[in-house]
Each structure stands twice: as structure tokens, then as C-alpha cells.
Design a protein around this nucleic acid. Structure first.
Length: 496
RNA sequence: GCUCCCAUCAUCUAGAGGCCUAGGAUACCGGAUUUUCAUUCCGGCGACACGAGUUCGAAUCUCGUUGGGAGUACCA
């Protein structure tokens, strides 16, 4: 039996990070067992699903590299892979009819109002809230006649009234157990003739030859219904495995109010698919040797379904950022440049060596590179005064530095390169930092100002307008003599 | 309310009776490298929810308590 697994997202809103998570687990499971990974679109909620959303799902999965062997836009032998198209084929109606004919389902004519009142009464009485099965008593022939006459109705499953249900989920200590009495007569076919999730998923999983359903824990409670449907429909049920739900920091189910859940957001932010996937791969699962950074292909090789931890992991963006940094800085230059280009329309190549280890994503580039591209920079007077100096001293030093650099440039064969600048400035510091023998007290005080730390910082802030920059000499080189000298003057001016 | 699931550092996790005075990673805090920032490297902080039981021995098994989560839709 070859493994066939699927993800079955519903195309409502933006593609969800939970889809990527479950997709990753399924993808890895398929890969690990030489199986097939399938995408199916579950768009049976006509009020909420959109084509645009389905398109976005395809795009996001491709962006992530979670390629599927069969799916709406790639085809396959068990299609169509979009449930609305299967509705048109009458697939679900046929199964509903089969259940009706077998006496395993019945027509229900209760209105929304009826159900609402019923639930309110149950809540008031402290009873479990579930359908009271009043239409189950209806004569099937009479009900069929009412339906034929056009009366609005749904089809419900005839859940067993007694006995119990038990299922050994391989990830849980104890088999999952329920009594049938507490299982609702689930609606299978809605009034509009479309199936609910339960019928549609069970039917399609069977028709598509799905062998393992690896899905989120939120489905655990409806497992009995799914097993029952498989049985009554004469299917061999796939193995169902339930994994933990991604959580917000407060442990509630991940939501867009408390976390970025849209895959589009991660893409726009400049996160790399490698980083996101790596991060998700660390949730509920781990590398057997504790390795933290790994790629999709590698994960496909070591992934072990039985090692999944079902306690719902908190989705921690800080860890994702860390992994993003690792992946980003390890990018080959062409790809890093492409990432930067994706964020800003600029030629980044020259500055890359200077900035790469200071970035976590392409979007960081401009923030760092601005002083290199700008004609002028804005100086903040407070930042311009190094510790231990006052305003006037800082201004004096700036002016003298400007003058010294001018003089340096005017000399024959002067070079404006990092190495030459470093040599010159070291020599300058040695020269100016030492008072001549017999110097006056004032001269000595002047010399004392020429401390490396202060001077370098003055140059840095003067030339770039900021205190954090790449290494000084390379920075000066790239900005260029003209702009550096000009900016030093402007900086001095700010301290007047 | 009812039902079910889960429970190791703040967070992600390793750990499937002795290798555990509980290991790694993130975050945080120090230090080293460095002209700043970042990178990198070193160090620190820091957890088996609680209570019984089983056992020579329990983070690991059982039960209870507590805590958290999910489900309870003609949504998926």
C-alpha cells in the first residue's frame, strides 16, 4: 500500500500558517514513506469560500516549496480536487442517498429557529447541547414526500444511540473514547444540497485513496462521526492522527488577532521559506540528534510521525526570527541580492559584504544602507558628542578632522581606501594625541582629546549620522571623500 | 454547562524506570573578539504543576487534584 496523504484547506481569507504546518507534516510523512502528497480544496461553505483565496493557497504552498503531487492546479487521476466541482458531479448527494436508503440517515425539517430555541433550553437546563433528534422519528416515506414537494430540509446521520466508540490514536497514551449517546446526529447535507465537511471529507478521502489523515486536534471530537461514516459507507477508513494546535502566547488556538497567521504576511516581511519551514518543523517535532537548523529535504528524511508531541506548541516569533537570521546570512550572494531587490529597488551588490551580517531579511537593507546612498545625512547633536567631551570640544575635533582630511586629500598620491584611511588616521592620532615637550597646559588638554575611541566615534557619526555602522574605514571609503568631508562640516555646524 | 485532549526552563524541545545533581535551542543577562553595531565564541539565569500509589529505584507507569486547550454550527 503506498502512502497517500493530503491537506484539505478551506479557501477563506488568507492562506493560513496552520495550513503550512499541517502541510509540512503531511509532506514529510509522504516523503519519508515514498508516498504521495495531495492538495484538496474544501470549499463547501458557499458563503465564505472564494476563488482568490484558493489561488493564494496554491501560490503560498509553491512559495514554501511544499509541492503536491496531485491537486487542483496540477491535476491527478483522482480529481477533481476542488469539492465544489465534485458537488456538481453529484458525488456527495449519492452517498447521502445511500445512507438514507440504508436507514443510516434521515431528513430533518427543523428550522434555524427551532434549533436555536432547543439549544437555549438545553443550556438553561445545564444539559449537553446537541440535536434532540426529533426528526429521527419521522416516517421516511413521508419525509421523502415532503422533500420531493420542495420543503427545505437537511440530511442528518443516524448516530448510534448506545454503545461506545474507541480509537487508538497512535500519538496518544489512551485510545480516544466516547459514548455514542453523546455523539450528535450531524448534518451531512445542508439545505442547499451541499455537503458538510464531515461527509465531504470522508467521501473524498476514500475516493482519493487517502491512507493517513494527519490533521489538527480540533478534529478529534468529530472522529467518531468520521469513522462511523466510513463504516456505513463501506469504506476502509484511513488512519487518523491528530496533532496539537499551534497556540498564541496565552495558549489559545492561534489567531490573527494575536499572531501573524497569514502566509502572505511572512512572504511580504521577507521571511525565507526555508526559515519558516525550519521553524514549523521544530514545533511538536525535533531532529533526532537535536540539530536545530535543517531544510525541507532533510526533514523529509528524518521525519518520524511517532515522535510528534501533541501538546500544542506556542508560536514564538522570536525563534522564527533567529532562524531567519541564520538562513538569510547563509544565502549565496545572488540570492541575497535578489531578496534585497524584492524589498527595495536598488543595486545592492557593492555594499553586501559590509551589511550582510547585520541583516535578517532583505527589508533590513535600506535601513542600514541609507547613509551610503543619501547625499546628506541628519545629525542628532546629542549623538555627536562622545562621552567625556563637551559640545565645543566635539565641534573643535570635527572641524580639525575635516581640515586634516582635506589636507590629506590634497597631498600627492592620496588614496581614499579603507587601508589608506586607516593608516592615515592612526598616524594622525599618534601625531595629534601627543603634546610636544614643553607644551602649555592648553596644548596638553588639546592633545588629550585625540583619543581613538572618541575620534573614531566622531568620524562615524559625522560621516553617517548614526552611531551604529559597519566598520569605520570601509564605511568612509564607500561614502567617498567628498561626502565625508561635507558631512563632517555639517556635523560641526550642528554643534554651534 | 457538558465531552474530550494535553501537562519538562518565559518559549520550542530532548528525555519511552536507573545513563538526569534533567540535555540542547530561543529569549534574557554577563564576558571575549572589535573603532560602534552586528556576526561569532564562551559563561550565567532557568523546568520535571501538585498529591498519593507501584518499584530497590520515577520526569518517565497508575490514580486523583489543579491548570491549560479544543469541541459542542445547515464553518471547516
Amino acid at each position: 500500500m503506498t502512502v497517500r496523504v493530503r491537506i484539505a484547506p478551506s479557501p477563506t481569507g488568507d492562506p493560513h500558517v496552520g495550513t503550512a504546518y499541517i502541510g509540512l507534516l503531511n509532506w514529510c510523512f509522504a516523503r519519508r514513506h515514498g508516498g504521495r502528497f495531495i492538495l484538496r480544496i474544501e470549499d463547501t461553505d458557499r458563503t465564505r469560500c472564494t476563488e482568490a483565496s484558493a489561488q493564494a493557497i496554491y501560490r503560498s504552498l509553491k512559495w514554501l516549496g511544499l509541492s503536491y503531487d496531485e491537486g487542483p492546479d496540477v491535476g491527478g487521476e483522482r480529481g477533481p480536487y476542488v469539492q465544489s466541482e465534485r458537488v456538481a458531479l453529484g458525488i456527495y448527494r449519492r452517498y447521502a442517498d445511500q445512507l438514507l436508503a440504508q436507514g443510516d440517515a434521515y431528513r430533518c425539517f427543523c428550522t434555524a429557529g427551532d434549533l436555536d430555541a432547543m439549544r437555549k433550553a438545553q443550556a438553561a437546563a445545564g444539559q449537553p447541547i446537541m440535536y434532540d433528534r426529533r426528526c429521527r422519528q419521522l416516517d421516511p416515506a413521508a419525509a421523502a414526500a415532503r422533500a420531493a414537494a420542495g420543503e427545505a430540509h437537511v440530511v442528518r446521520m443516524k448516530s448510534p444511540l448506545e454503545g461506545s466508540f474507541s480509537y487508538p490514536d497512535r500519538l496518544r497514551r489512551q485510545p480516544f473514547t466516547k459514548t455514542w449517546a453523546e455523539i450528535d446526529d450531524q448534518v451531512l447535507l445542508k439545505a442547499d444540497g451541499w455537503p458538510t465537511y464531515h461527509l465531504a471529507a470522508v467521501a473524498d478521502d476514500h475516493l482519493m485513496g487517502i491512507t493517513h489523515v494527519i490533521r489538527a486536534e480540533e478534529w478529534l471530537n468529530s472522529l467518531p462521526k468520521h469513522i462511523w461514516l466510513n463504516q456505513r459507507l463501506g469504506f476502509t477508513a484511513p488512519e487518523y492522527v491528530h496533532v496539537g494546535l499551534l497556540r498564541n502566547a496565552d495558549k489559545s488556538k492561534i489567531s490573527k488577532r494575536k499572531n501573524p497567521t497569514s502566509l502572505l504576511w511572512y512572504e511580504r516581511q521577507g521571511f525565507l521559506p526555508e526559515a519558516l519551514l525550519n521553524f514549523l518543523g521544530l514545533l511538536g517535532h525535533s531532529h533526532p540528534e537535536g540539530k536545530e537548523q535543517f531544510g525541507l529535504a532533510e526533514m523529509g528524511a528524518f521525519f518520524d510521525l511517532d515522535r510528534i508531541n501533541v501538546a500544542g506548541p506556542v508560536f514564538d516569533l522570536a525563534k522564527l526570527r533567529h532562524l531567519q537570521g541564520l538562513w538569510f546570512r547563509a544565502l549565496p550572494p545572488e540570492r541575497m541580492i535578489a531578496e534585497i531587490h524584492r524589498a527595495v529597488d536598488i543595486q545592492a551588490g557593492e555594499l553586501l559584504p559590509l551589511l550582510r551580517e547585520r541583516m535578517t531579511c532583505g527589508g533590513d537593507f535600506m535601513g542600514q544602507a541609507e547613509p551610503f546612498y543619501a547625499q546628506t545625512v541628519a545629525h542628532h547633536p546629542d549623538e555627536l558628542v562622545p562621552k567625556g567631551l563637551d559640545r565645543a570640544q566635539a565641534r573643535g575635533l570635527l572641524e580639525q578632522l575635516q581640515a586634516e582630511l582635506r589636507k590629506y586629500l590634497a597631498a600627492d598620491g592620496a588614496q581614499w581606501t579603507a587601508a589608506a584611511l586607516e593608516a592615515f588616521l592612526r598616524e594622525l592620532l599618534a601625531r595629534r594625541g601627543q603634546a610636544a615637550p614643553g607644551a602649555t597646559a592648553e596644548q596638553q588638554a588639546q592633545a588629550a582629546l585625540w583619543q581613538q575611541k572618541a575620534v573614531y566615534m566622531l568620524l562615524r557619526v559625522g560621516a553617517t549620522g548614526r552611531a551604529n555602522t559597519p566598520p569605520l574605514f570601509e564605511t568612509l571609503e564607500r561614502i567617498g571623500a567628498l561626502r565625508v568631508i561635507e558631512r563632517l562640516g555639517a556635523a560641526a555646524g550642528r554643534l554651534k
